[in-house]
């Protein structure tokens, strides 16, 4: 059974249809890149998978491990193993990062009927992961993302990914706002999480990110549909020729 099956998905925001019948299948262990020009519906797809309010699914379905994802609240999807790394992670003043991480992890475990993480185990794990991502300990005491640089915010997303151990990671424009060094640290963090049991969907406008996170499959989106799929070479091809040809095709 595929990990994620998006079938003929049609999505509206207010009166406007953004996705016009999108189909995508992702198996365990695979890394898929979704590329496309601005406004092609890439971020909409990621939001609908995570369950963000404000989108109306008019047709089609999303199955995750064979279950109907659209019937679940966002927190249920997270507990089932769906993780969206936000393009713009929000700042939450007054909620210490450490409190947030522990509350979220234990909420997910509780929803799955697992026991709560013990404090020493939790701290040990956070320390290990934050060290490998170059996240200083004092950052974890601050409010979630408050005063973090763009790179720190993205590393905090990767830190959560490592802690929550989701089976599907959706990275929404992870490269936006990052310089090359920050990008490399975040990408290294993501690569360390690649595993035969975990799939990733990497959404990006630019080919650059795919030099660091090398995908198994590349899909090109245009005007709310996948218009071309291929291997990692497709990204290079796009870099050379641009998106214009697909906009005409779609």
């Amino acid at each position: 059974m595929p990990l994620l099956e998006v079938k003929d998905l049609k999505v509206r925001v207010e009166e406007r249809e953004i996705l016009h019948g999108l189909t995508l299948t992702v198996n365990e262990g695979e890394v898929h890149a979704i590329m496309g020009p601005n406004g092609s519906g890439k971020s909409t797809l990621s939001h609908v998978i995570a369950g963000k309010p404000g989108y109306e699914v008019t047709d089609g379905q999303i199955l995750f491990k064979g279950e109907d994802l659209l019937e679940m609240d966002p927190d249920e999807r997270a507990a089932k193993g769906v993780f969206l790394a936000f393009q713009y992670p929000v700042e939450i003043p007054g909620v210490a990062t450490m409190t947030f991480l522990r509350t979220a992890l234990n909420a997910q475990r509780k929803a799955r009927g697992e026991s709560e993480y013990s404090t020493p185990d939790f701290l040990k794990k956070v320390r290990e992961v934050s060290k490998s991502l170059n996240i200083p300990q004092d950052m974890l005491k601050r409010g979630v993302n408050v005063g973090f640089s763009g790179g720190e915010k993205k590393r905090n997303e990767v830190l959560q990914m490592a802690l929550f151990e989701p089976s599907l990671c959706i990275l929404d424009e992870m490269d936006s706002g990052l310089d090359i060094d920050a990008l490399r640290i975040a990408a290294d963090g993501v690569n360390a999480l690649r595993s035969p049991k975990r799939a990733m969907v990497v959404i990006t406008h630019y080919q650059r990110l795919l030099n660091y996170i090398v995908p198994d499959f590349v899909h090109v989106m245009s005007k709310g549909r996948v218009v071309k799929s291929g291997g990692k070479d497709l990204a290079l091809e796009l870099e050379a020729s641009g998106y214009a040809q697909f906009e005409d095709a779609a």
């Binding site: 963000k52 966002p74 927190d75 999807r77 929000v90 979220a104 909420a107 929803a111 959560q160």
Partner: peptide, 12 residues
């Protein structure tokens, strides 16, 4: 903010 927390597994 609510969506971010829910997307991380916190019930409403």
């Amino acid at each position: 903010l609510l969506f971010y927390l829910k997307a991380r597994g916190l019930p409403e």
